[in-house]
């Protein structure tokens, strides 16, 4: 199976321009025989939208969203939007499109609202973390900060995901003598989580700068043994392609059957107890 990470440079709040960029990437991916193409978080909108969030929000049946969804013929496409629900709540959402229609939507659950981030000011919080079936196998989607909560990939692994798709927008910060703090963290998280659960992780990061904040790229794919398959370049747009053999999931889980041995009853029991304690019961 041929997968590609579309490491693009979205224009802030310029949806028409971003649709063009998506179409160009999709065209290139199709020419290279890519079967699954993954864009970064909020790829159709740009990241730090602030009040633009209201202006660019799209319903699932909007022309803008459907323009990309309708391209998902012969290629599956994951991309990011500001979703406006029927009750006018905005979500930071990832769409998985296949056979020309929306197959699954993940609404970002963990909205960073601290330091340089202000997402919960604008977005409603997603309430579901669920895997879904695709023509390749079972897939789960997470968006950026979701991945920093170990419970999120944990739930998707328990829900039988073999491939975890992550749409991310990580800023370059914490430069130190040896490298980049955020890059170190992402590499560590992706490789460890893939190894814990014996699943593939394909994570697309954006590039470009918004008001001085630079997104570093370095989109990454990791195999179920925790080994990195590919890294996108730093700071540059790129279509990062790689081959993925889902049978590797079987081999990883035979070798290290952590998923088999997981005791979800115990986890639920203990979490229930902890919850009761927190509620003061």
């Amino acid at each position: 199976m041929k997968v590609a990470l579309a490491q693009i440079r979205p224009h802030l709040g310029n949806v028409a321009k971003n649709i063009e960029i998506h179409k160009q990437m999709i065209k290139q991916a199709k020419e290279e025989g890519v079967e699954l193409l993954i864009f970064p978080e909020l790829s159709l909108m740009g990241y730090n939208l602030l009040d633009l969030t209201y202006d660019v929000a799209c319903t699932m049946d909007s022309e803008e969203v459907q323009e990309i969804v309708s391209e998902s013929k012969g290629i599956d496409i994951a991309f990011g939007i500001v979703e406006r629900s029927p009750d006018h709540i905005l979500y930071n959402s990832a769409i998985y499109a296949s056979y020309g229609s929306v197959q699954s939507v993940h609404r970002k659950v963990y909205l960073p609202t601290y330091g340089m981030f202000d997402e919960a000011r604008y977005f409603g919080r997603g309430e579901k973390i669920r895997a879904f079936d695709t023509r390749f196998g079972r897939v789960g989607m997470l968006i950026c900060e979701d991945m920093w909560h170990p419970s999120a990939p944990y739930l998707l692994a328990q829900d039988r995901a073999e491939l975890l798709i992550v749409l991310a927008n990580s800023p370059a910060r914490g430069v130190h003598a040896k490298g980049l703090g955020t890059q170190d963290s992402w590499d560590l998280i992706l490789t460890s989580q893939a190894q814990f659960y014996g699943m593939f992780i394909a994570c697309t990061q954006r590039v470009g700068t918004e008001d001085g904040v630079t997104f570093f790229g370095n989109s990454t794919a990791v195999d179920p043994f925790g080994d990195t398959l590919v890294h996108g370049p730093l700071f540059e747009e790129s279509l990062v392609t790689f081959d993925l053999d889902l049978d590797m999931v079987r081999r990883a889980r035979f070798t290290t059957p952590i998923l088999r041995d997981e005791n979800t009853d115990l986890v639920i029991r203990e979490l229930t107890r902890i919850q009761q304690h927190r509620r003061g019961e």
């Binding site: 370059a172 430069v175 130190h176 003598a177 490298g179 470009g208 700068t209 730093l234």
Partner: peptide, 19 residues
Amino acid sequence: LSLNEELTTQILTTALHEE
């Protein structure tokens, strides 16, 4: 206080150019 010089220069020049 020490920075990776090549990386810092790359971030600053790339972002300066784009902005």
